[in-house]
């Protein structure tokens, strides 16, 4: 019984790690390829928060209770601070007069 639980936890941990790495990669591609600072923030903030949370969850499933609590606290901290930082950067970009790409009028040529 104990062995089965260990196998299931290991499988969940591996799945969570692969998902987290996938979302981190998608966020990086969005940071490189999207045309505007707002689009880049939109892509990276969500993907990076979810990816970091999944990787930390994968580590927390494998460790003891004390270490797992610290990892979950770290994930909660990222969940709070990462959108806040992106919001502040986006506000600074908006006040600096950068126009978002999608709100420009299409040219007539």
């Amino acid at each position: 019984m104990n062995e089965i639980i260990e196998q299931v936890l290991g499988f969940l941990s591996l799945l969570s790690l692969c998902g987290g790495l996938f979302f981190l990669f998608v966020g990086t591609v969005g940071l490189l390829r999207l045309p505007d600072v707002f689009n880049r923030l939109h892509a990276t903030t969500k993907c990076d928060t979810l990816g970091a949370g999944l990787v930390l969850l994968s580590l927390a499933l494998q460790s003891s209770a004390a270490v797992g609590t610290r990892l979950i606290l770290l994930a909660l901290f990222i969940l709070i601070t990462n959108p806040t930082a992106a919001h502040v950067i986006a506000q600074a970009a908006y006040k600096a007069g950068i126009t978002p790409v999608l709100s420009r009028r299409p040219s007539n040529d």
């Binding site: 966020g27 880049r40 990787v55 930390l56 990892l71 990222i78 990462n82 600074a92 970009a93």
Partner: peptide
């Protein structure tokens, strides 16, 4: 723009944290 660079540095900080925990 400068805001692009700040966003990229923020993302690098998050990923460095992940490397430290791994």
């Amino acid at each position: 723009t400068v805001q692009d660079r700040v966003a990229a540095v923020n993302i690098i900080g998050t990923k460095t944290l992940l490397i430290i925990t791994l």
